[in-house]
Structures are given as structure tokens and as C-alpha cells.
Write a protein that binds this DNA or RNA. Structure first.
Lengths: 232, 232
DNA sequence: GTTACGCGTCAAGAATCCGTCAAGCCAAGG
DNA sequence: CCTTGGCTTGACGGATTCTTGACGCGTAAC
């Protein structure tokens, strides 16, 4: 038996999935919005997440990407859209599988089992929902940042940028690594973004001389932390 | 880039997949029967296997099951049969994914990437991040260099030049090898660069007489190390 | 002895990269 | 419909890095 979280706003489909999966001896929890889903994952980490792309509040892809910043729990995406673009997009944003509606309960169950199989091979649940790097603290779940215990108001992209650096605090993050992880693999050439966002982040952190967010010419950026005080 | 094995007896589809995946920078090998496929996996283990269910000799499911007795390499199954039973069967027999023909090359690539992600997630950064060659130490991750435990400030090209030599410490690197690897294959004739950069590097290392970075006239350069003390 | 060649040395112009700032654009929300 | 916030672009100066050309020196060939 395994714990499954279904995130879907379509009540009928959600109930059908719940009943179906429960009948197959799974322990099911549900959420109807992206935010609720993320909270639920943080609160009671399931073994597998079944995620509908069409949510009312957040785009399903965003849920996926955000989740991937702090969790490796397998995600099976559901969508009525069977187009190749949509599939590629979802899979590249961290989804582990993609099922086009309508689908059969036994197929869903089979794919859940595949996901579970992968999980056992994976490492322990990290579930780091908070990153610390020197004077910086990032709450990945609520997208809140503090610097020297002072709240800092960051836009989503600024936050993702910082979070990526913080996750590798002290280490150089190449320009491509940052762009592909924060903006997506299609943005690997948009070097200009890095300058602009590094600048804005530095200003918001009052890091006037680039002492904290350091640039390595032609290579990338890195967060400077006092000693080995890295993440986790 | 990753190594992919395609097992399929449909020559047209096989070629299409090969061309498509090669175009996406994968290294592709092929097999046309189940037995050949299994042999190929044993001989040259790929990173991902793409397996058509309709093979002439063995049932695709049997290939899967046999493979799973001794290997965990991800398998993506292809089939013209879109029925739920068939999918469940394949997934429960060890397949990691199931694609119904016809499908797009970009979706296949995306699912290959997912499979690779699962694999690489297990193997955490055990990459070589540090090179040592006698008195020189290069941190490839941080792009930092020390010589006799003294930090040396190198430009990107200088660093790449030195890193290439360090990777083959003690051995002669021909002028063309260096130019093609550090500057790119279009620069194979720019012999002048070598002089300029060797000069600058020597100055920064205080190796004025070229005792460490040694020149071999008309051939190339090499790093001089005490004995066979090579990399790592 | 002279010539040719390859290398080391040096400096200056060209190209690149970064930081900075502002304006345009687009979508969400009132 | 208008406002607002955030993302995307473009422009420019200054600093760094790369490229290119010039010259001298030693060695090996003639």
C-alpha cells in the first residue's frame, strides 16, 4: 500500500480516481488547487502525486517546477490535451509521466506502480522546504525570503534564481545551468537575463558590491557563504 | 549525450528513431530481434532502451522480463496497440514507459530525458571536480586554481588551457589537440595563441623558465610532474 | 656565416562581458 | 477600462579578456 496525492479540480474525475485507487489498496489524499496540493505535499509527503494540469489557481507546470525545487516525489500528469508540445513541456518541467484523458484506472494504477518502483531506488526523502545560505533564508514552499532576518520581497523569477544558487551555495553555477533550471531549456542563450536579475537581486539584498552574489566572468554566478555553511 | 539502444524489427521506424535521436545528440545503437537486443545490452550497456513490443523472435514482454532479472536500465516500450491491458501488462513486466504508435520524435526524446533523469538522480555528483598535477590543483567546479597552495587568478581561456594540459599531465599535448579542445576545431591553425597563453600562464604561475609548463618544439606543450602523478 | 623557423615577449586594438538603467510588453486584478 | 507588477528587450559605459601584430632571440639547417 502506498500514499497517493491527487491534485485535481474536476470533482468527478477526482472521485473516480480516489475510489479506483483506494480499491487497489492505496491510501489516497486529495487537493483541489495547486497551492493546497503543494501544502499537502509539504505536510504529508505522499509516495506519488497525480497532478491535473488544468488547475484554477496555478498552472500545473508551475506546480511541477516549484515542487521539483524541493522534492523528488514522482509526478504523474493528467491532461485532456494530447498534443506533443504539451507533453514535452510537462515532462521537461519535472513530470515523470503524462497521461491523456480519458484513461483507464488500471493504466493509472500500473503507472503508479512504475513510479513507486523508481522511488525505491531513489534516495531518502529530502523534503527541504527551507534553504539557508549564510545570511539568507528561503522558504521554498511559501516563496518567502529573509536576509539578515529582514523580509525581502522577490518576484517569482528572482526567487527561483536565488533558490537555485542557494541550493548550490558556495559552488559556481554556470550560466547555462541557471538559465535551464530557472527559465527552461529553451532559454539557454538568454545571457542577458542573468545580468538583469543578478542586478535586481543584489539591490533588494543591499548587496551593493556583489560580495554575496558573486560573478565569475564567462562562467556563471555563485553565492558566497561564510564557511561551509551550505544548504539543508 | 547518452547511449540509446533501439530494438525494433520495423526498419522504417527504427531508422526514423535513429535519425531523430541522433539529431538530438544521442549516441544510438540498434538491434532487430529480441535476442540481439539482449546481447547488445550485455555487451554495451546503454543508458536507455527503446523496445518495440512486436518482435519476430521473442515477445517484447519476455525481453523486458529477462532484462529485469539482471539489469535496471530504463526501458521505453513502443507498441501499435493502445489497449489498456497491453499497457498494464508491459508496465508490470518491467517497462518504465509505454508509448503508442504513432508518436512524435520530440515526445520520445522527452521521455528519454525523463528516464535519464531517473538514472542520473541516483548517481549524484561523483564527477571529477578536481584535477591535480604536481604542484598544480584545479577546481573545475569553482573554476579556481592554486599552484604551490597559492591561489592563481586565471582567465577562462587560461584556465581551460591549463585544465586540458592537467588532464593529460606528464604527456605531450600536440598544438592541434590543445587548440581544438580549448578554442574549437576552427582554430586549429592559430598557433600564435599557444605562445601568448603559455607565456601568460607561466607568468601567473611564476614559472618563468617553463620548467613546469614545458614546450616541445614544433609539437606541443606538456606539464612536468614529479613522477607518474597524473590526475585526480 | 647565413638563413629559416619556432618560440617567447610585449603592447595595442577589438571583442566580450558585466552592471546599470529605462522603456516596452503582457497578463492579472480592480 | 485602467492600473499594476513582473518579464523581456535594448542601450551604453567601463572593465576585463581575447586577438592580432611586431620584434628579438636561440637553434637547426643550409
Amino acid at each position: 500500500m502506498s500514499r497517493i496525492l491527487i491534485v485535481d479540480d474536476d470533482t468527478d474525475l477526482l472521485n473516480a480516481c480516489r475510489v479506483g485507487l483506494q480499491a487497489l489498496q492505496h491510501q489516497v489524499r486529495t487537493a483541489e488547487t495547486g497551492h493546497d496540493g503543494l501544502n499537502e505535499v509539504a505536510l504529508r509527503p505522499p509516495d506519488v502525486i497525480v497532478l491535473d494540469l488544468g488547475l484554477p489557481d496555478l498552472d500545473g507546470l508551475q506546480v511541477c517546477r516549484r515542487l521539483r525545487t524541493w522534492s523528488d516525489i514522482p509526478v504523474i500528469v493528467l491532461s485532456a490535451d494530447g498534443s506533443e508540445d504539451r507533453k514535452v513541456e510537462a515532462l521537461d518541467n519535472g513530470a515523470d509521466d503524462y497521461m491523456t484523458k480519458p484513461f483507464g484506472m488500471r493504466e493509472l494504477d500500473a503507472r503508479v506502480r512504475v513510479a513507486l518502483r523508481h522511488r525505491t531506488a531513489a534516495i531518502v526523502d529530502d523534503h527541504v522546504t527551507e534553504l539557508r545560505a549564510g545570511r539568507l533564508r528561503l522558504d521554498l514552499l511559501h516563496y518567502e525570503a529573509t536576509f539578515d532576518d529582514r523580509a525581502v520581497d522577490l518576484t517569482p523569477k528572482e526567487f527561483d534564481f536565488l533558490a537555485y544558487l542557494a541550493r548550490h551555495a558556495g559552488k559556481i553555477c554556470t550560466r547555462r545551468m541557471i538559465l535551464e533550471n530557472v527559465w527552461g531549456s529553451a532559454y539557454a542563450k538568454e545571457l542577458h537575463y542573468l545580468k538583469v536579475y543578478a542586478y535586481r537581486i543584489r539591490r533588494k539584498l543591499h548587496d551593493e558590491e556583489g560580495l554575496f552574489l558573486e560573478n565569475d566572468p564567462s562562467v556563471g554566478y555563485r553565492l558566497v557563504v561564510p564557511d561551509g555553511a551550505g544548504a539543508h
